[in-house]
């Protein structure tokens, strides 16, 4: 089950890179967060870690429900441009994405050997980091960059789950709080100028 969820996590991230519409990107962020939340809950149940189950539940509520809703609300309120064509053309992305995946499997190999975790999970977590950076770089508009940054946080959370079976609860809560703060700041940045990003 965890392999299935990690696979879907990666798949949603790859689709996000090809997406040229803002609402569709928000949808893929929602699916990405959903997979991550379910994965945390699933691993938490498997290793009997209540803190990880709570983190997964918070991820589901915050990242899979509240943040996508707020993002869509903000994009409507501030009339954000919905056509977000990526700067990297599709035929280059088709080559670039597998290259990143293969490259990260190669560089993550020595790390994976040291950890007791599944090597594939670590590699996918690290490749997700690179893919989110691509997502942030390939757009000129602010909105997809914000989603890229939120997905980057998802990728880090995935690495935390797969490499360490979750970080201490207080730290996880702090990270969630920071994400909420980021959303407030993003709202204020849009609000105080009415700039169409």
């Amino acid at each position: 089950m965890d392999n299935f969820l990690i696979g879907l996590f990666l798949a949603t991230l790859i689709i996000s890179i090809f997406t040229a519409r803002l609402y569709r990107l928000i949808f893929w962020y929602f699916v990405n967060s959903l997979m991550l939340g379910l994965l945390a809950v699933f691993i938490g149940i498997k290793v009997h870690d209540n803190a990880l189950i709570v983190s997964g539940a918070i991820t589901l509520v915050l990242k899979a429900l509240i943040i996508p809703y707020v993002l869509k609300y903000l994009s409507k309120k501030f009339h954000l441009q919905r056509q977000i064509t990526p700067n990297i053309k599709v035929h280059y992305s088709v080559i670039l994405i597998p290259a990143i995946l293969v490259f990260t499997f190669f560089i993550a190999e020595p790390i994976s050997h040291m950890l007791q975790a599944n090597p594939n999970d670590i590699s996918i977590s690290i490749s997700s980091l690179f893919l989110t950076l691509i997502l942030m770089m390939e757009h000129n508009h602010v909105a997809p960059k914000i989603i890229g940054f939120l997905t980057l946080d998802n990728a880090l959370f995935l690495l935390g789950i797969t490499a360490t079976n979750g970080m201490p609860m207080l730290v996880e809560l702090g990270v969630f709080f920071d994400i909420l703060m980021a959303i407030v700041i993003i709202n204020l940045l849009f609000k105080d100028t009415g700039v169409k990003a």
Binding site: K145, F149, L152, D153, V195
Partner: peptide, 29 residues
Amino acid sequence: AHKEAWNYMIVDTIAISIILFGIILIYAS
């Protein structure tokens, strides 16, 4: 200032994410 605030948000979130990435590896080790 508006442009630079967004720039700061993006550059610094990348920087801070890199720090967290390193912290996770340290923690894992």
